[in-house]
């Protein structure tokens, strides 16, 4: 399943890539693949911005604005002005996630 097209904040800098394959290993949507011993992006529209690739790329070849893609969290952040959080107020009755 694919979500909205051309919205992802995923950025890949091929020059920094050493071809370790970690991004291919951690991406749950197959956004990366190995070609000629380097990583390539197969389809950036598959990206859900979870951030696993960027966190685990030792060479800084990937940048992504990772965060919770939850409408309630984003609405809360608009109301409170804080960062989007999944905690829904932090009460034990939380129904998020």
């Amino acid at each position: 399943m694919k979500y909205l097209l051309d919205v992802t904040s995923l950025e890949f800098f091929p020059k920094k890539c050493t071809g370790c394959g970690r991004c291919v290993d951690v991406c749950p949507h197959g956004v990366f693949a190995m070609r000629d011993k380097r990583a390539v992006i197969t389809d950036s529209n598959l990206c859900m911005e979870c951030g696993a690739c960027a966190l685990n790329c030792e060479f800084g070849a990937i940048k992504v604005d990772a965060g919770v893609g939850c409408a309630a969290a984003l609405i809360n952040s608009i109301i409170t002005g804080g960062p989007p959080s999944c905690d829904c107020g932090g009460t034990t009755g939380s129904d998020c996630c």
Binding site: M1, V7, T8, S9, E49, G69, C70, A71
Partner: peptide
């Protein structure tokens, strides 16, 4: 609201 529970929606899209 279901965007928060799926396995494929990202923050920029929402």
């Amino acid at each position: 609201q279901f965007t928060g529970s799926t396995t494929f929606t990202g923050m920029s899209g929402v």
